[in-house]
Amino acid sequence: MSDDPQNVAGHSPPRPGAPALPPSYDPAHTAYLPATNAQVVVQTENLIKRFGEKTVLNGINLTVRRGETLVIMGASGCGKSTLLRCLLGAHPPDEGSVRLFGQDMWSLMPPEMDAVRKRFGTLFQSGALFSSMTVGENVALPLKEHTDLSQDMIDLMVKVKLELVGLREAEDLLPSQISGGMAKRAGLARAIALDPELLFYDEPTSGLDPIMTGIIDGLIMDLARTMNVTSIVVTHDLKSAFRVADRMVVLNEGRVVAEGMPHEIKGHPDPFVRRFIQGPIEAKTAIYPKSALDKGPGG
């Protein structure tokens, strides 16, 4: 993709011999924009999702191309997980369409749907490990069910995937015996068991300590860079969002209020986006208006 002439004017891929960065580019960041003619992997058109009276998603348009990492940000409860579930084909949209690999999931017959599902992996917010199985068995399940590999091969693959997330020693533990961070990493090992082309992550770093967050972010970036996996990451953790994103969207009240490269989002004029990104600073002024501070304590 980096060889694509159309990409030269855009942003540079993190590859040796990449063209010079444009002046507005944040040099600390290694995002790249895939060629505009790269294959569209996920596409939504005017996606609307309601729960009863409540419209959670109100006309979402997204296009994700092969190899890029899209981060979806937004406040808690704004519908990020709902959007992810619509993309996964777990919730039918009320209006509009969702296309994965060019196919509308809801027009497919179950066997074709399963064929699409085998092409992507998902890391759920809680890890969603199967609690009756050990970590190793969790990772082995997709391999056992969807491939013709021998038991020896499966055991080997499980070890490789667990090694990748640094969980070799936890293979024989039950999900109840491991920590939240380990459960997330184990969930990631299961998500990549079938070497998917596309990975969905639902808040991969929420509730983790900074070290574990760094490890998970590193895994997300490694998978994207070394295996050219297309990634869609839902998060409200700003630090990790800016670390992994090639492109970002911000959701508010069921709509995309901002979309662009990380540096574009950082300088975005939309008031909600600015409040979201600089949250704590403005919150202070909101809680203590200047007039109240002038009066001093007890005043």
Binding site: A90, D114, R117, G121, T122, F130, P142
Partner: peptide, 15 residues
């Protein structure tokens, strides 16, 4: 399993 998203994980994993 349902409230832990395990059922969802099975479904979207084509299991």
């Amino acid at each position: 399993m349902t409230v832990n998203e395990e059922i969802l994980a099975l479904q979207v994993g084509a299991l």
